[in-house]
């Protein structure tokens, strides 16, 4: 039997969580503030949400971000699945070290460097910057996260299940699809979710790789935040937090359910 945490530890956990959540809670609270002044409570109101609905630029940025996120997350998950298979099952192939280096480096590489590097690529390829360059940039960065998530599950997956399927008459490719994929599906879904969220969040890579007409939501928020606090940003932030939190909690519960059965 595990001993419970001491009062000191309980206090630290509680204080840490307050630290993590207090600013977010205040932000959400003040998004329902009727007052124009962001730090003075003027009664409850949904006026900033209403204003949001008429903010064409903001809506456009949301739409760009969603489209970039959907496409880049799908690309990243597909490529990440292949990369994970290569890393877990490939044994030693030529260029393996370089490959795993490229897969893991972006996880901790400062975003500013990645953004700069990608921009130089697009400039030297004479690609017009815009929607597709942001999407490619996001797919590259999130591919690494997707690979790590899928790889962890695949490495823990009992190889003999796939062998059993082959033994019973399925070709290696069909065995992978019929047995391995259904069993690592939660990880693939989690990888997609992670890639999508990261894409939705990213400011730095997008700023470097985007061009006119492809302003993502974080870029839009950033330009407004630089001008100061604004209740409309509170509203859009609250919506974003709500969507992401719902997604994460759902993904968590799905994973929990999977591991229980």
């Amino acid at each position: 039997m595990r001993r419970g945490p001491s009062p000191f530890l309980v206090a630290m956990v509680a204080a840490g969580l307050v630290f993590l959540y207090a600013p977010i809670a205040l932000l959400i609270l003040y998004s329902f503030n009727a007052s124009q002044l962001v730090t003075v409570w003027g009664g409850t109101s949904l006026r900033w949400y209403a204003a949001l609905a008429h903010d064409e630029q903001m809506l456009d940025a949301v739409s760009v971000s969603l489209r970039v996120g959907l496409i880049s997350a799908s690309l990243a998950t597909g490529l990440g699945l292949l990369a994970a298979v290569a890393l877990v099952r490939g044994g030693r192939f030529r260029g393996r070290t370089a490959f795993s280096g490229m897969v893991y480096a972006p996880l901790v590489m400062p975003e500013v460097i990645l953004g700069l590097a990608l921009l130089l690529l697009f400039v030297s390829l004479k690609l017009p910057r815009g929607f597709w360059t942001v999407t490619a940039g996001h797919a590259t960065v999130t591919l690494c996260y997707a690979t790590v998530v899928i790889q962890a599950r695949l490495a823990g997956f009992d190889r003999s299940l796939e062998e059993a399927a082959q033994d019973l008459g399925l070709s290696p490719a069909r065995a992978f699809l019929a047995v391995t994929l259904p069993n690592i599906a939660p990880a693939v879904a989690a990888a997609w979710m992670l890639a999508f969220t990261l894409s939705l969040d990213d400011l730095v890579i997008a700023s470097f790789t985007s061009g006119p007409g492809a302003t993502t939501l974080p870029m839009r928020l950033y330009s407004q935040v630089r001008l100061g606090v604004n209740p409309e940003i509170n509203a859009v932030s609250t919506l974003l937090i709500g969507v992401v939190a719902a997604g994460v909690v759902a993904a968590f519960l799905i994973q929990q359910g999977k591991t229980k059965t």
Binding site: G16, L17, L20, Y21, P23, I24, L26, L27, Y30, V38, T39, L194, T197, L200, D201, L203, P218, L221, Y222, V225, V229, I233, N234, S237, L240, I241, V244, A245, G247, V248, V249
Partner: peptide, 18 residues
């Protein structure tokens, strides 16, 4: 603890400004 990590970095920093 994980949840804030999934929440927009920019928004979390912005929340501190207020």
């Amino acid at each position: 603890v994980i949840l804030p990590f999934w929440t927009s970095f920019l928004i979390r920093i912005y929340a501190w400004i207020a």
